[in-house]
Design a protein around this nucleic acid. Structure first.
Lengths: 254, 254
DNA sequence: ATTTGACTCTGACGCAGCGTAAGAGTTTAG
DNA sequence: CTAAACTCTTACGCTGCGTCAGAGTCAAAT
C-alpha cells in the first residue's frame, strides 16, 4: 500500500536525474535495455526509484566503454565473470589509446616537418606520414623487404629506375645507422654533427617526392598485410632515433 | 604518346598497393574523393600512378584521424592552413585520449574494488563507478552540493531518511580528509593506520548500497550539467588520495 | 569456340547510438 | 478554457565501409 506515495518520474525529469536525454530513454526502451516500470494511459513512460538504479548502472557501464548490447547481456547476468569482463574491457580501451598515441605522434612529426620545411605541400605530407608509419617498425620492415616484397618491387619497378629506389633505401638505412651511433655516443642534439644529421633527414624527406613510389608500394604491401603482424613488435631503436632528430630540429629552428 | 606504356591498375590490384579494400575504392569514388582517371568500356575502374599518390594522401590523412569529408576539403585545397589543421586535429585526438584515460582509470579502480570485495555485485559496481567519476573532481563537487543541489536533494529525500544520506556524505568527507592528512604526513600505506583507512574506504563503498540514491542524484544533476564544467578543473588532492588508498589495499591483500 | 575461374560492376541493407525534425495527442499552469 | 510545455511514435541522417546478391567481363585452359 505504499504504492501511492512512491514517486514516479516522467521521461524528462527522469532523464535529467542521470544526465541522459529523453531520446536515449526511448532508445533504451526500444532495445529492451531499460523499460519503464509503468506506462500511463496516454502511453507516457513512468519510471521509479528502482529504474534510477538500473539507469545508473547503464550509464556507468557505458562510461567504461561497453556497448549497449554488452550492457544488456551484463545486466541480464549473462556475463562470464566480473573480473574478466573488466580486464578485457580495459585491454580493449588501452589498445584504442595506443592507436591514438600513434596518430598523435604522427601529427607531431608532421608538424615538425612543416615547421622546418615551411608551407610544405600536402602531397609531401602524405609521403612523410607514410615514412612515419614505417619508422617505428623498421626491424621487420627489413624482414618484409628481404623476403618477397623485395623481388616484387624490383619486378614491378619498370617506370622508375630501380637504382633510385634502392638508393633511397640505402640513404635511409645509412642515415638511421649514423643517428643510432650519435645516440649511443650521447651526442648533443645541438652539436654541428647532429645538425648535419637533421639536415640530411629533412633533405631525405624532401627528396622522397622523387623516386619513392616503389618504396611506398613495398610499404603498402606490408601495411595491407597488417593483420598478420605479430602483436608486440620490438623496436630496437625507433624512439630514441626519433627523439634525437626531433630535438636536433628543435635546436636548429628555435 | 606515352599513353600506351603507362601502366593502368584495376581495382583489386590498385587496392592492394595501398592496403585498402576494393569496396573502399568504390566508396571513395562514390563520394567523389578519389575517382579513377579512366573507366574501361565495361565500366571497370582504371587507376594510374597519379592516383596512387592521391590515395596515399587519403590513407595518411585518415590515419591521423580526419574524416573523409574533411579529407575531401583538405585535398581540394579548401583547408585553412596546414599548421592550423594539424594542430586542431592533434588537440581533438588528445581530448579523445584523455577520455579513454578516464575510462581506464575507472576500470582499474573498479578492478581493485572487486579484488578487495571479492565477487562484488554489478549493482554495487555501478555505484562505485559513480563514486569514481566523482572522486577526481571533488573540489567543485562541493560547489554543486553547497549551492542548489543540496536543498534539492533534501527536498526530494522522502523515501529515505535524510540523515542517512548526510551521514554518508559526512563519512566520505571525513575519510578523505583523514587520508589527505595521511598523505601529507607521508604515512606508509602498509602501516596499521593506513590499513584502517583502507578498510573504512571499502566499508563505505559497500555501505553505499544502503542510502545513497540521493547522493547519486546530486551527482547526476551535476553530471547532466557537464557541458558547463570548466575545461581544466584543479584537483587539490584526488590523485594522491587515490594512489594512497590503492597502495594501501595492495599492501593488504597481497 | 567455349567453359571455367577470377574479377568487376551496381545497388542496397546493416551496424552503433542516438540527434533531429514531423505530426499529433496530453497535461498543467494561469 | 487556452496556451505552453511535455510526451508519444515514425523515420531518416550520420560514419565508413562490410557483406551479400545478381549480373556482366576477361583471360586462360579445354
Amino acid at each position: 500500500m505504499n504504492k501511492r506515495n512512491e514517486k514516479l518520474f516522467k521521461a524528462r525529469e527522469f532523464a535529467q536525474l542521470t544526465g541522459v536525454t529523453v531520446r536515449a530513454l526511448h532508445h533504451y526502451d526500444g532495445l529492451g535495455l531499460l523499460k519503464p516500470s509503468r506506462y500511463s494511459q496516454a502511453g507516457y513512460r513512468l519510471y521509479r526509484e528502482s529504474d534510477v538504479a538500473r539507469l545508473e548502472q547503464i550509464v556507468a557501464l557505458k562510461f567504461i566503454g561497453f556497448s549497449l548490447n554488452e550492457i544488456k547481456r551484463i545486466l541480464k547476468g549473462a556475463a562470464v565473470d566480473l573480473a574478466t569482463a573488466l580486464r578485457r574491457q580495459r585491454e580493449a580501451i588501452e589498445q584504442k589509446r595506443a592507436r591514438l598515441d600513434l596518430a598523435i605522434k604522427a601529427i607531431q612529426r608532421a608538424e615538425y616537418v612543416v615547421a622546418v620545411n615551411g608551407q610544405s605541400s600536402w602531397e609531401l605530407l602524405a609521403k612523410i606520414i607514410g615514412v612515419i608509419n614505417m619508422q617505428g617498425n623498421m626491424d621487420w620492415t627489413r624482414k618484409y623487404y628481404s623476403e618477397e616484397a623485395r623481388r616484387e618491387i624490383e619486378k614491378r619497378a619498370a617506370t622508375i629506375p630501380p637504382e633510385v629506389i634502392e638508393q633511397s633505401q640505402r640513404d635511409w638505412a645509412a642515415l638511421i645507422k649514423e643517428v643510432e651511433a650519435a645516440v649511443a655516443a650521447k651526442e648533443d642534439p645541438a652539436s654541428d654533427r647532429a645538425q648535419a644529421l637533421a639536415t640530411r633527414w629533412s633533405e631525405l624527406i624532401k627528396g622522397f617526392t622523387g623516386g619513392n613510389a616503389e618504396v611506398q608500394r613495398g610499404l603498402n604491401k606490408m601495411y595491407a598485410d597488417r593483420n598478420n603482424w605479430p602483436a608486440s613488435t620490438p623496436k630496437p631503436f625507433g624512439d630514441q632515433v626519433e627523439a634525437f632528430i626531433v630535438e636536433a630540429m628543435r635546436c636548429a629552428k628555435k
